[in-house]
């Protein structure tokens, strides 16, 4: 089996899955979803670790370490900021109920 076609297959199927899983998102969740997806592409950290771990020149090492710092900020910051946004969502919900009960 042609390896390039295997990669293409994974790519095409992922495109359809990516569209399908978020197709029913409510408009209030647009920003947290964008933020969560943003955190997921922070997985480039994995790529940064793989290339940096294989470097031997000093310049390449420095570039690789910069890439690791940037990718980590993307990944960790992305997930934390998404969680903060969603925390706000879950807190909002009980509030109107309580006011109604009063």
């Amino acid at each position: 089996m042609n390896e390039g076609v295997v990669w293409l297959t994974i790519f095409i199927l992922s495109v359809f899955v990516g569209i399908e899983v978020i197709s029913k998102v409510s408009s209030t969740l647009h920003t947290p979803l964008m933020s969560g997806a943003n955190a997921i592409h922070g997985i480039i950290l994995l790529g940064a670790i793989l290339v940096t771990g294989a470097t031997d020149s000093t310049l390449a090492l420095v570039v690789g370490l910069v890439a690791i710092v940037l990718a980590t900020v993307n990944m960790v910051g992305g997930f934390v900021v998404t969680d903060r946004m969603l925390q706000m969502f879950t807190r909002k919900k009980p509030a109107p109920k309580n006011e109604g009960a009063r």
């Binding site: 994974i10 790519f11 992922s14 899955v17 990516g18 978020i22 997985i43 793989l50």
Partner: peptide, 26 residues
């Protein structure tokens, strides 16, 4: 996703493509 193809890493490819597709749709 393209980086995942270059590095032959399936997780980068799938993760990147998911974000690329869902991000475009979003």
């Amino acid at each position: 996703a393209a980086g995942g193809y270059v590095l032959s890493n399936t997780l980068l490819l799938v993760g990147g493509t998911l974000v690329g597709a869902s991000g475009t749709f979003l």
